[in-house]
Amino acid sequence: MFVEIKNLTVAYGGIIALRDINLAFEEKSIVSIIGANGAGKSTLLNSIMNLVPITTGEIFYDGRKISGLNSHDLIKLGISLVPEGRMLFTHLTVRDNLHLGAYTFLREIGRKEIRKRAEKVYELFPILKERKEQIAGTLSGGQQQMLAIGRALMASPKLLMLDEPSMGLAPMLVKDIFNVIKHLNSQSISILLIEQNARAALKMSHYAFVIDTGRIVNEGKGSRLLCDEKIKKAYLGG
């Protein structure tokens, strides 16, 4: 298994956000996690990225234990997060935001390679190239999301985690973003996706987990979960 989480429990601020989570998935797949607000989906991604401390449990990635490693080591191993709310460097330029996405690799690969990686992102999102001198905080919501994904791609991840990438976007843009995610997956990047838009997420996922109040309550192939009566009622609007 490419990613394997064993008995993960996360508690902070007096509440248990995740309780005894076990999940695993294969490389090069699109895996989504669906669930209501506050179910613990973001906490799961944040605990993989070591942004919240793990109470008990272990996380394995590509055959090695990664729980406890700090964020910049995780990026070096090929794990990137597009965080909830995008978290751009709002008053730096689009280009600087992208370049900083590869900051950890500066010594290894040099500025020239960083510029090359940025060019690849511009190919994926041409609008960002047009606006590369613009201050990131002044971009539209959709462009900001593209930039957030672009910044994560600058680290050439093997595992790309996206936390609610469609949040606050117009339906047209949501479709674009989903197409980009599929495209990235076709380039053999594994995708771990959190989505409010459960139907769209399940449609394109190879596998999915359903989280409810910190526990995994269901899992299976995306196509199967789409037909599951319980899930239809709870997350797909009937």
């Binding site: 990225m49 942004l51 964020s71 910049h72 990026i75 070096k76 997060l81 965080p83 978290m87 751009l88 460097f89 709002t90 008053h91 730096l92 600087d96 370049h99 900083l100 996405g101 900051y103 950890t104 500066l106 500025r111 910044r151 680290a155």
Partner: peptide, 23 residues
């Protein structure tokens, strides 16, 4: 310089800086 920009990035959003691997 990238170092200078990375430093600025820490002020804008320390969590985002951590996510992108800036110490």
């Amino acid at each position: 310089t990238m170092l200078g920009k990375a430093m600025k990035a820490c002020a804008v959003n320390p969590v985002a800086a951590r996510i992108t691997g800036i110490n």
